[in-house]
Amino acid sequence: MKKPNKEAVAFSRHINDWLTVYVPTVQSSSAHTVKNHHDALSLFLHFITQVKGLDARTFSFKLLERQVIEEWILWLKNDRKNSSETCNNRLASIRAFIKYLSEKDVSLTYLACESAQIPRQRSVRKKVEGLSKNAVKALLNAPDTNTSTGRRDLVFLILMYGTAARIDEVLSMKIQHLHLHASKPYATIIGKGNKVRTLYLLPKVVAHLEKYIVEFHPTQLDPDSYVFYSRIKGTSTKMTQPAIAKRLHKYAAVANGECPEVPLNLHAHQIRHAKASHWLEDGMNIVQISFLLGHADVKTTMVYLDITTEQEEKALATIENEKDREIPKKWKKAPQSFAELCGLRVIK
């Protein structure tokens, strides 16, 4: 490769910092998220070098302008035959990176504004296949508790269903995040964007966790050790999502024989969705469910659970009742200048 220009060097440095430092520590601890961002940027670089015929000598940040990104999205859709959902995921990754760039270099702020205006591809949202309570019961009966692996997997399933946590949230849980001897036992969950939330644990979950810790953490507890771990060459490491997926498929096949409602291609997210649906069936308010799921917006939960119009009205009424509307607004006045809109100091 011939000597790159200054913008290409800066671009590569920002990519490295974003993928290896910012995303894993600030945006998300999920390896899956990092991989998605990495794939999106790799495809974008492939597009500008192999399709548009540019290289590190001719690179310019102008290649991140709206017109080029829209051309890239169409290339993904038409040439690579990516689905609308995949195109939208790639677009989200590029937007996140450009936003990061704009925070590092104010002269690139316009790129973030442009990318935010790029419309998403229209797609039909795939409904998550639910699990009935009978299906969940059959699934929990599937692990062989005569083996240590079966006992571990049972506790993992009980914790996932009991908290409706995301799979990576459970896999990332460490001993220090469990508070089993508090007056009201709870677990601290580190969610997307490193957002922290507290989930209280029911007695059944606590009892299984206590037995599990005695068996799988028999020596003095290390607060930084993972609750669920794999042993590789004598070292305890974080369990991987593919390993859990393999176990779930095995138990789904067993549970399907007892309850045909258990899908053979079961994935972890269906357990989370099932618990949220069961909370709703049991009369829990949408706002409470939204908090427990770690959703930033209650409307996300409404879409997630296919909430009816009537249920949506009740939820919104809970968020803001008549008294709330009479409370004076506490947020700041609207920005009076473009500089304020950009979060900059107004120079007088």
Rank of each mutant, 00 (worst) to 15 (best):
I347N: 13
E169H: 08
A276Q: 03
E210R: 00
C113V: 10
K329M: 15
I347L: 13
T109H: 14
V227I: 10
D79A: 10
I347W: 15
A56G: 07
D17T: 13
L76S: 01
M284P: 01
D153G: 08
A339F: 15
H269S: 07
N36S: 15
K35N: 12
H46M: 09
R247N: 02
K204W: 11
I175S: 01
W18K: 05
F216W: 02
I189E: 03
S102R: 08
V128Q: 10
T49R: 11
V206Q: 04
H208L: 09
L91V: 06
L45W: 13
T25L: 07
R247I: 07
G294H: 09
T237C: 05
A112F: 15
T308Y: 11
H14L: 15
I15C: 10
S102N: 04
L293Y: 00
L209S: 03
C87F: 00
A268S: 02
L264H: 01
V206G: 03
T58Q: 12
V34K: 10
P185L: 02
W279P: 00
R166I: 09
R122D: 13
V155A: 02
K104I: 13
N16Q: 13
N146H: 11
E85C: 01
A253S: 14
T149Q: 01
I232D: 04
A40V: 11
H46R: 14
A315M: 06
K238L: 03
T219M: 11
W75F: 14
A276M: 07
L159I: 05
